[in-house]
Amino acid sequence: MRPDLVAVPIGAALTLAGSAVYAVRALRGAVSPDPLTWLFWTIAPGVAFAAELSHGVGMGSLTTLAVGLGPLLVCVCALTGGAFRWAPTRYEWACGAFALLALLGWWNTANPDVAILLSILADGLAAVPTLLKAHRRPDTEDPWVYVLMAVSAALTLCTTPTFTFAATAFPAYLLVLCGTTLFLLRRPRTGLGGISSGTRHASSTTRTAESGGGPRASPPNPQRGDRS
Score class of each variant (00 low, 15 high):
residue 1 M to S: 14
residue 2 R to Q: 13
residue 3 P to E: 05
residue 9 P to W: 07
residue 11 G to I: 05
residue 14 L to Y: 06
residue 17 A to M: 07
residue 17 A to Y: 10
residue 18 G to R: 00
residue 21 V to M: 08
residue 29 G to N: 10
residue 34 D to T: 04
residue 36 L to D: 00
residue 45 P to W: 01
residue 45 P to I: 05
residue 59 M to Q: 14
residue 64 T to C: 08
residue 70 G to D: 01
residue 75 C to R: 02
residue 80 T to K: 10
residue 81 G to V: 12
residue 84 F to A: 04
residue 87 A to Q: 12
residue 90 R to C: 00
residue 93 W to Q: 11
residue 94 A to G: 11
residue 96 G to E: 00
residue 100 L to N: 04
residue 102 A to M: 10
residue 103 L to Q: 02
residue 103 L to I: 12
residue 104 L to V: 15
residue 106 W to M: 12
residue 114 V to G: 03
residue 118 L to N: 03
residue 119 S to N: 09
residue 120 I to Q: 01
residue 120 I to A: 05
residue 122 A to Y: 00
residue 127 A to P: 00
residue 136 R to Y: 06
residue 141 E to H: 12
residue 141 E to S: 09
residue 163 F to V: 15
residue 163 F to C: 08
residue 163 F to N: 11
residue 167 A to W: 01
residue 178 C to R: 03
residue 181 T to K: 10
residue 186 R to T: 13
residue 186 R to L: 14
residue 187 R to P: 01
residue 188 P to T: 11
residue 191 G to P: 01
residue 193 G to F: 06
residue 193 G to R: 06
residue 195 I to M: 12
residue 195 I to V: 15
residue 195 I to S: 06
residue 196 S to N: 06
residue 197 S to N: 03
residue 204 S to H: 08
residue 205 T to D: 14
residue 207 R to E: 14
residue 208 T to Q: 13
residue 211 S to P: 01
residue 212 G to M: 04
residue 212 G to Q: 08
residue 212 G to N: 10
residue 214 G to R: 11
residue 214 G to E: 05
residue 218 S to Y: 04
residue 220 P to H: 10
residue 221 N to F: 06
residue 224 R to K: 13
residue 228 S to Y: 08
residue 228 S to N: 09
